[in-house]
């Protein structure tokens, strides 16, 4: 019963933040609303018992990525007057209709999970799985998922170099 509280609270926070993020005109407010949404999501992760991921969510997402967003917003000097207002008429209702249809369809399609299905026993990795146990996660990451992990680090490197190249003032033509 205990996990309902952080999940429910975090979920509402996340949804509200998301709604604000897409609705607010001021880009800075929108990014901040997204930060709120990320924090709510982190709360949900805590509720799910994945403390480590909750922490990462806060550190990486709210702390790094969205701050990067903020930087960019300020760098390009985006003011509310630069942002066109939400469309009216057909584009608005059409988009809402599409989104609702999507939501309804997916919820309806996933309704089977509403019935409490028994969880599948996890033996694929063979490590007793505890989210709280950082040691266990590190072990999995460096044994079974060693190669993807390395590829990921490479990806990060590529992203780093790419971003540097892209934002150079005068790239070699």
């Amino acid at each position: 019963m205990l996990s309902w509280i952080p999940i429910g609270l975090g979920g509402m926070l996340a949804l509200a933040g998301a709604a604000l993020a897409i609705a607010l005109r001021d880009p800075i407010y929108a990014v901040l609303a997204l930060v709120k949404s990320m924090l709510g999501l982190a709360l949900v992760y805590f509720g799910l018992g994945a403390d480590y991921f909750g922490a990462i969510q806060i550190i990486v997402y709210a702390g790094a990525i969205l701050v990067l967003f903020l930087f960019v917003v300020m760098l390009v000097n985006l003011t509310p007057s630069d942002i066109p207002p939400l469309p009216r008429g057909l584009p608005l209702y059409g988009a809402i209709f599409l989104a609702l249809l999507w939501m309804g369809l997916l919820s309806w399609g996933l309704r089977a999970f509403g019935r409490a299905l028994p969880p599948r026993a996890a033996e694929a990795v063979g490590v007793p799985y505890l989210y709280q146990n950082l040691k266990a996660i590190g072990k999995v990451l460096l044994t079974a998922y060693a190669l993807p992990f390395e590829v990921l680090s490479l990806t990060l490197l590529v992203g780093l170099i790419g971003a540097t190249l892209l934002t150079q003032k005068r790239p070699k033509s």
């Binding site: 949804l15 897409i22 929108a30 960019v72 917003v73 939400l86 608005l92 988009a95 599409l98 989104a99």
Partner: peptide, 17 residues
């Protein structure tokens, strides 16, 4: 959350948003 993201994608007319 996904649907809200979708809606934002459809509605916002600024690449950053």
């Amino acid at each position: 959350l996904f649907t809200l993201g979708l809606l934002g994608l459809l509605l916002r007319r600024n690449i950053l948003l």
